[in-house]
Design a protein around this nucleic acid. Sequence first.
DNA 1: CTGAAAGCGCTTACAG
DNA 2: CTGAAAGCGCTTACAG
Lengths: 310, 310
Amino acid sequence: MLNGSPQVTPEAVEQVTAAVKQLNYVPNRAARNLVRRRTQMIAMVIPERTSEFFADPYFAEVIQGAAMYASSTDYTLTLLIESDTDPEKTRRFLTGGNVDGALVLSHHSSMQSYADLSPSLPVVFGVRPLERIMPEPYVVDADNVEAGVLATQRLIDAGRARIATITGPLDTAAGLDRLEGWRRALERAGLAEGPQAEGTFTPASGAAAMQRILDTGQPVDAVFAASAQMASGAMGRLREHGLSVPGEIAVTAVDNNFFAADTTPGLTTVDLHTADKGALLVQTLHRLLARETVEHTIAIGSTLVERESA
Amino acid sequence: MLNGSPQVTPEAVEQVTAAVKQLNYVPNRAARNLVRRRTQMIAMVIPERTSEFFADPYFAEVIQGAAMYASSTDYTLTLLIESDTDPEKTRRFLTGGNVDGALVLSHHSSMQSYADLSPSLPVVFGVRPLERIMPEPYVVDADNVEAGVLATQRLIDAGRARIATITGPLDTAAGLDRLEGWRRALERAGLAEGPQAEGTFTPASGAAAMQRILDTGQPVDAVFAASAQMASGAMGRLREHGLSVPGEIAVTAVDNNFFAADTTPGLTTVDLHTADKGALLVQTLHRLLARETVEHTIAIGSTLVERESA
DNA sequence: CTGAAAGCGCTTACAG
DNA sequence: CTGAAAGCGCTTACAG
């Protein structure tokens, strides 16, 4: 009755609903879960490497979006931080009947092991797998190629023609795809590719990459950095060299986080709507658990946020 | 038997343990919780105001520490983001029998409403309440007075004598206590209080506060900022004025997050061990739920991290 | 359509 | 000390 059976008069429903409200009746989750053979819990798996987790606002944003969306469902979201010392621990938890499904934000090698959990445990990935880990994985991720195009196009629109790039790690989907976006935008505009240097998404790596680009001696009037953090480090280095932004060198980047707002001048960046991604991850898993048909790849759109650096 | 009854021969225990392991037996949580009348879940309540949540690495750090500690217990940690539009929603969830206890990171007005949940729902606060919200609240928090002393003492030890401060919001415990630490350190050293200006913990507010301090025209050779983010903004302003750090003005702050590592020069800050705080919050609640006697106030020590700004 | 019964997988109090 | 039974609070299949 409380679960919406076929034919009940609206009045009856109303009366029961009223009674439920008045008595402050709350169904017991444990009892319900016991008989339904479900836990009503979903796990969000996050890589441990603390430095990365702390230094990257990305995770906080995904988690916030996911937690907020989850609160509108009858699922509870729990955070599962991968243990570096005991990698099996996470898997034991997931396969131990503690959760109905998992959201995986890890990458690289560990993705495969989560893919193996499926289909006994539904899994949605928050990162595009670089290799084939299973026939048809569910993936919710930003369109990083589009983000790269957007940021680079902005430099082109500003009249720049010698555009360098500071890439992310080239063994990650985000690093690879944003570089690909830079390439495509230049190609469409008929521009030659400027120098490129690889970073690790951190400010320090961005500064070092900027230095290597300057060291090539090639003329450069703009830089597309694959992350705001790297752009922040790069702009510091440009300042040390007395190069003005955007006057002599225009800069754009991906990730509209507080690093972007905190640079001088403010950084023109692509907003990846990361909180939306968190929400969509939960929503996708939720629909999967409700046995709905879900597209395997869900791309999240990005938008350019204009500040002063380009 | 599986729950450690008094007199069982070690051999028997061993045999059962072996069998459990071999059969990959995992007790059903729902069934266990149903009979025990527990949920084995604890909630971490976090303020919604998105800007704050994103801009402040503090929450990510507390959550990480809490999630990691929780994984070593048989409790599951769930994130409860307070809804600004429906403040009652959070309370309904907490009182609806969904969790065995709560960790509250909110402050101000909402603290009282969570205090009212106790003792039917054990609550541990992560912020020292400014007003008396209940007879004896459980609080796990950094010693912000000590942190203020540490950061200010560092400036004194460096031979500075005209020490200004950029305070946090003076309606928060952290803002008030760090200011108090600055006062005490100066008093002990027999130094006069330099100018002070209030900020909101953000880089922009730090820059504005720095400006107001300079505008006073009072001679200043050092600044203690109540947060690394404000110090970051303040250092930008000093640079614009052509004032060198630490040459002309030495700077220290509280919060050893990536803002501290990312300034030029690197910021000497006080590390509040925020991840430890997250772990201790969970541990304290865990002990409370196990009916252990727990001290009402648990202070977390802080340490000075020396970089180049002082 | 309605209502009583069985059963989900545990724990615990109790009879043997 | 051991083992069978009752019961936690729900849902669902089934008899009426």
